[in-house]
Design a protein around this nucleic acid. Structure first.
Lengths: 349, 349
DNA sequence: GACACGCAGGGAAACGCTTTCCAGAAAGTG
DNA sequence: CACTTTCTGGAAAGCGTTTCCCTGCGTGTC
């Protein structure tokens, strides 16, 4: 099992085995072959822990997400994992479930495991522990925002652009009464999305009464609850923008339950473009944020912080683009152009 | 950072620090206090790798799933992680994406990381590598089936019961023409589900023509494709059972696309009861398989294999129950009892 | 007061690996 | 033929822990 067994079997020293495994070219051809054969025979796998102990680098990356059961995150996890593995890293995943205490213990555990760096994809924690890490120059990547310190890497999602596209799409269809269901406003990203919405509306000279801004939770349940409130309004808005797709799914569900047709009576726009979005009934018009770009930027940023010789791509901020994907949950406002209502049951997807 | 720094700062030997950290009671109160203070001051975190090197146990568990982006798996992951962490273990996650090569490299990587055991939740791989591990008595847990060897732990999901409940529910409503969309038949679990369906139908004396059994892929896309085929049949079945919820979601989507009402024209039953199922339009009637039970059994089975003194709960097989959850995607067959069609748009969820 | 006994704490080995240093052999040169 | 140079393989140190063993101190007893 250990390097010694291989050495013994091949009749060489453990140093030779180590050199062979690490493909150091000074090892004699014949010897190397004998070593590889012995490795094969005893089924030897180098012990990564021992390696890490010596080299000081564990080749593990931490990935912290808010909630693994929110379908948005598995998509990131998958991309991140693929990239990391392809580049010789293993990934330690943790979800905080939005509890600061869990976040703290998660980071602590990851540090004990000696991860080389951590990507914090939780859209808004502010931990004292993180401050300390930053000061120690431990490689960290944040999404959206991070401690305001010089050597911090942040992935900036361009919420404004995608949301503006969404608002303009609705306005172009003729909507004037557009409500917005935000995420939990203690998350910076939720605030950023809401502000982008308000700004986009203002640009078009459209008013947004306070009753049309509802705080949700970025979950399906939150979407339902928020929609329940909107449904009771004397005047139902003609379109709803949601801070993420899960909220939009909850909204669709509540509208179904209260027998409001989408998009005939009300249009719905999501955010994230999770894989599920296109399978909703109707397929969800939503703002796409590229998981691939996000994951790639995160891995790159981490490696830049970890590997001394990594080609410094100079920048400390990565810009993640967003754009609208129009599907069938949006249409003209109810009452206008009734001839077009056939859109409700499209003949092709 | 290391134990030596703490020892120096507290003016004791590293042995004493180690004993303090591990709460060995023979350490003097005052000394222990000094040590804890020093630990606090230098921000010491014990290096898990070094610990693992000595103890031979890494306190890491591997969890292999088929596809992290299939919402069923994150639910398992979350449960598994919660339980594992609560019991002092870390979790290394990997998804195979149904590729045997990935599975192999995944297991290899986990072994290099010295995981104490691996839960293989992929519903059907048969790897040579796994055979070897089994022979080495490496702790492994499988779902559904495993190599036919004496000391293998397997979580047996009781597909038969849940599926029988589903079939009987449909039959009780009056359905006779029930189609089944299976998973990929190279997966044992997919075969088991299909067979359970056929058996349940036979029990009721209901015939299942070959054209009513379609092989899917356990994905939404697969559900769509399968449903496309069923829709072209001269006689559309009145109900569809699906091998998992993702397939059912694809089916709902395709039925929406082809303007077939669910459940007025056709009833749909899923399997798994993922969290999303209740938010589908209409909320999906489905067979629940308990993630909690699954994860709990997996962790318990692994610990039994890892920890010498773990209370052997004797059994080598864990039985995971399933049962039907009736929601609104099932109703009477079209044409029968038209008075009841009001169910299509329920007034409460 | 001297000796035995018990117990807390320190020194050192070991875990599996990498890395460095050094010895010895082979080859080349005067 | 002897001496130097080069190159390969072996031996040993060290990474951060835990743990064993032994020292040395304190207490109790005769």
């Amino acid at each position: 099992m250990s390097i010694r067994d291989v050495a013994e079997r091949a009749g060489v020293s453990i140093a030779t085995v180590s050199r062979t495994v690490n493909r150091i070219p000074t090892v004699d051809q014949d010897l190397a072959q004998r070593v590889w054969k012995a490795i094969e025979e005893v089924g030897y796998l180098p012990n990564t822990q021992a390696r890490a102990l010596v080299s000081g680098r564990s080749h593990m990356l931490g990935l912290i997400v808010s909630e693994i059961t929110n379908p948005f995150f598995p998509e990131i996890v998958q991309e991140f994992e693929n990239l990391a593995v392809a580049q010789g890293y293993e990934v330690l995943i943790g979800s905080t479930n939005y509890e600061p205490a869990r976040t703290e213990s998660l980071i602590r555990r990851m540090l004990q495991r000696n991860v080389d760096g951590v990507a914090v994809m939780t859209f808004g924690i502010e931990e004292e522990l993180i401050q300390k890490l930053v000061e120690r120059e431990f490689p960290l990547v944040f999404i959206d925002h991070g401690p305001n310190l010089p050597n911090i890497r942040v992935l900036k999602v361009n919420y404004a652009e995608g949301i503006r596209q969404g608002v303009q799409h609705l306005a172009a269809l003729g909507h004037r009464e557009i409500a917005f269901i935000s995420g939990p406003l203690r998350l910076r990203s939720a605030v950023a999305r809401r502000d982008a919405f308000l700004k986009s509306m203002a640009e078009l000279g459209l008013k947004v009464p306070a009753r049309h801004i509802i705080e949700g939770t970025h979950t399906m349940e939150g979407g339902m609850t928020a929609m329940e409130k909107l449904v009771t309004l004397p005047q139902l808005p003609t379109a709803i923008m949601c801070s993420n797709d899960m909220t939009a799914i909850g909204v669709l569900h509540e509208l179904y339950r209260t027998t409001h047709g989408v998009p005939q009576e009300i249009s719905v726009v999501g955010f994230d473009d999770i894989h599920l979005a296109q399978f909703m009934l109707p397929p969800l018009t939503t703002v796409q944020m590229s998981c691939k770009a996000l994951a790639a930027a995160a891995v790159e940023a981490l490696r830049a912080g970890i590997e001394p010789n990594y080609p410094k791509s100079s920048c400390k901020e990565w810009n993640i683009p967003t754009h609208l994907v129009v599907r069938q949950s949006t249409s003209f406002p109810r009452g206008s152009l009734p001839a077009k209502m056939g859109l409700a049951a499209p003949s092709k997807s």
